[in-house]
Write a protein that binds this DNA or RNA. Structure first.
Length: 709
DNA sequence: ATGGCATGAATTCGAAGCAG
DNA sequence: CTGCTTCGAATTCATGCCAT
């Protein structure tokens, strides 16, 4: 058909009967969670690709003073050359096709054929006119006056990566919207569908784009702002560079690239009928044995046509195979009956993890950093294969999850993930559930977790170390589902505890909490030494999260005034502290009088009121445990003074519970007649305080500094 | 350096329940 | 009905992995 595929493969076979039918392709697209693209979206993407070409194809720098040619043609003048006109016409023809596409479902072949002719013509014209990649490179080399492009920078700094935040480039750009990636699950779903039609001989391969980001040039607007300053490490001199292509490390680069990559994927799916999916620059292509050469050439042709450079040979360019790797996992399609395929972690990762676990178990101490790292890796190993939720994953080399045509149940009557075995570097089995079972002794516990079926272990009355909470009943039924990583964590720590012999984990470190019918085991190994100003949180506080609307200062003043007249002095004091101190309400409510440092406590020396926070949400995370909040608004200070001055040192600032605070909050709103009109909650005090400070002219950096983490 | 996706703990929200 | 508590759901904030 159209000579896209090679004639040697008997292209006549490549009809709709061999590939998935229109209807089923839609089904695939539903499975891959890809919302159906509208015709307009596709047109937009194509138009964008054309624009990209125009930018790179422009003879002169688009944003220089030489405006003889308007690169994007945005200022009303259509490109004058006939090619440009033709492109426009073709674009409109295509648009027309898309419009009638939905009404022509009865004749999918005809429509697709026509579309292919159309898009092919258009792309051919584009291609004939300019080779984008070469142009980009040429373009980069031509810029001798101003040092430009990552090419130069890279030659200078080799593999060194530099921060674009330091040049305030990231601060100047933002990215809206969220992009849905197609993960390993997507490929698995596509494979399942494929299995239904083709019982055997399925193959797959991955196609990797070369230095993906740098294949895309910047728009003319972005070019005007894409200067960075870097210090030359050899001379110490500061030099300026202009980035001509999507820079690595820029906020917007990731989204921009993904948009193009998904568009490519969609083009291949729609016009070339390629069953592939895209994950950043990794394209996973599936095919039957008979059509593998054809598929490969089709994909290569599409990428060539649009000027994308990819690995044709070398390590990264693996040919079609029944075993292939993508996204960090290995797909094994070798099944004699052709009714199932296997997804497993790569051998290297499994072995490395098993080795590290063995080392960890042999150590006497485990530091929080290492613990978190190993936990994350375990989570990934378990979660990558079974998707969200995760399941305890077999770490025995050579075994993975087996997906079958009908369901995702385990094979051979064995539940997935059950009886997981750990091997250490000597090949000894240290099955963590074995260790798990021996560590819990004396009491029956049952844990349920997704794929993990109900199992019974014996619980040792000695406290067990773990990070997660595992609620359980003493009669053996789970309180609620426990994620596998909790089990893994518990098993891991049991392992450590076992090898530790209980030396480093003192009974005091752990707690067995009695919650009526259930017990909850807790312990804490998390103590990081990390402290940094959270810019993001600061900005969010300033702009206000949608869920926690910042309280406007006038509203706050009204509420406080009203409450004060009602006699809720301490309520007012707490509210003011939280607002002007930008604190969480819960933190303020937990404080006692001795935490509060009034002006008179310092003999009026101090111009502000301070509140010391002993423990806060983030206090465990290695930050200084004591935090202060500061209130320097004169009126607020006067009220706070009057509300709290007479309290005993150990008396709580607010004697009632947080919900009592909330009730009075609601009551005040109600009295003001605003109950149903605004949705402000006490949580908005923190953001409201930040906004008020900002309005008063307080610099953002100052607000951030005062913003308690 | 950026983005995506997970999990887990702490906190907050909002509805239901209880006593007066 | 009022004032408060309780409990589950939702949100925030930290970590990890993957990909460039």
């Amino acid at each position: 058909m159209l000579g896209i595929r090679s004639a040697d493969d008997g292209y006549s076979l490549v009809g709709e009967s061999q590939l998935l039918e229109h209807r089923e392709r839609m089904q695939i697209s539903r499975i891959v969670k890809q919302s159906p693209l509208s015709a307009q979206q596709v047109i937009q993407v194509l138009a964008m690709l054309l624009q990209v070409d125009l930018v790179t194809g422009a003879e002169s720098e688009p944003n220089t003073q030489n405006t003889s040619e308007n690169a994007l043609g945005q200022d009303g003048d259509a490109p004058e050359d006939s090619f440009g006109l033709l492109e426009h016409i073709l674009e409109w023809i295509m648009y027309g096709f898309f419009l009638v596409r939905d009404f022509a479902v009865d004749y999918p072949t005809t429509v697709i054929l026509a579309l292919q002719i159309c898009v092919l013509c258009m792309l051919c014209f584009t291609l004939c006119r300019r080779g984008r990649a070469q142009q980009l490179r040429q373009h980069a080399d031509d810029q001798s006056a101003v040092p430009t492009v990552a090419v130069h920078v890279k030659a200078f700094f080799r593999s060194k990566r530099f921060s674009l935040s330091q040049s305030f480039l990231n601060a100047a750009f933002g990215s809206e919207g969220k992009i849905q990636l197609r993960d390993a699950e997507t490929i698995a779903a596509a494979l399942l569908l494929f299995l239904r039609r083709h019982k055997s001989g399925l193959l797959g391969k991955t196609i990797d784009l070369k230095s993906a980001y740098r294949q895309l040039p910047l728009s003319s607007e972005a070019l005007a702002m894409s200067f960075i300053a870097v210090k030359n490490p050899e001379t110490g001199e500061v030099q300026f560079f202009r980035l001509l292509c999507l820079p690595f490390g820029a906020v917007a680069a990731v989204h921009a690239f993904i948009r193009v990559s998904l568009a490519l994927c969609h083009l291949g799916q729609t016009f070339w009928l390629l069953p592939w999916s895209a994950f950043y620059d990794d394209f996973t292509l599936l095919s039957t044995k008979a059509l593998s050469s054809s598929s490969e050439k089709s994909a290569a042709f599409l990428l060539d046509l649009l000027g994308f450079d990819f690995d044709r040979d070398g390590d990264k360019a693996q040919p079609f195979s029944s075993i292939f790797r993508a996204l960090g996992v290995e797909f094994n399609l070798q099944d004699k009956e052709g009714r199932s395929f296997e997804v497993a972690n790569t051998k290297e990762r499994t072995e490395e993890l098993v080795r590290d676990l063995g080392e960890l178990a042999s150590k006497e101490k485990i530091c929080p950093k290492a613990w978190n790292k190993i936990r994350g890796r375990l989570d990934f190993v378990a979660g990558q294969l079974a998707g969200q939720g995760g399941s305890v994953q077999l770490l025995t080399p050579g075994s993975g999850l087996r997906f079958r045509e009908q369901t995702q149940e385990g094979v051979g009557g064995q539940d997935m993930g059950l009886d997981a075995v750990l091997l250490n570097q000597e090949g000894c089995v240290m099955a963590w559930f074995g260790v798990f079972a021996s560590a819990f002794r004396g009491q029956k516990v049952s844990i349920d977790s997704g794929y993990l079926r109900k199992r019974t272990w014996h619980l040792q009355s000695v406290k067990l170390a773990k990070r997660g909470n595992i609620p359980f009943e003493d009669r053996g039924w789970p309180i609620k589902n426990v994620s596998s990583s909790s089990c893994v964590a518990a098993g891991m720590m049991a392992l450590v505890w076992h090898s530790d012999g209980g030396r480093n984990i003192a009974p005091g470190d752990l707690a067995l909490e009695d919650r009526g019918a259930a017990y909850v085991l807790t312990f804490d190994v998390q103590r990081r030494d990390l402290s940094s100003v959270d810019l993001h949180a600061g900005i969010c506080g300033l702009l206000g999260d949608p869920s926690r609307t910042p309280v406007p200062e006038p509203l706050l003043l009204s509420m406080v005034t009203l409450a004060w007249m009602k006699g809720y002095k301490r309520w007012c004091g707490c509210t003011l502290l939280a607002f002007y101190g930008m604190a969480r309400v819960g933190e303020v409510l937990a404080c006692r009088r001795r935490h509060l440092l009034l002006r008179e406590d310092l003999f009026l020396f101090c111009p502000a009121v301070f509140l010391r926070l002993d423990s806060s949400k983030t206090s465990l995370h290695g930050r200084p445990k004591v935090q202060h909040i500061r209130v320097d608004d004169t009126r607020a200070m006067a009220l706070i003074q009057s509300a709290f001055a007479d309290l005993e040192p150990d008396e709580r600032l607010y004697p009632f519970s947080p919900s009592a605070f909330r009730t009075r909050w609601d009551r005040s709103l109600q009295t003001l007649g605003l109950q149903d009109m605004v949705s402000v909650t006490p949580g908005g005090l923190r953001g409201g305080g930040a906004v008020a400070a900002y309005h008063r002219g307080c610099p953002i950096a100052d607000i951030q500094w005062r913003w308690p983490p």
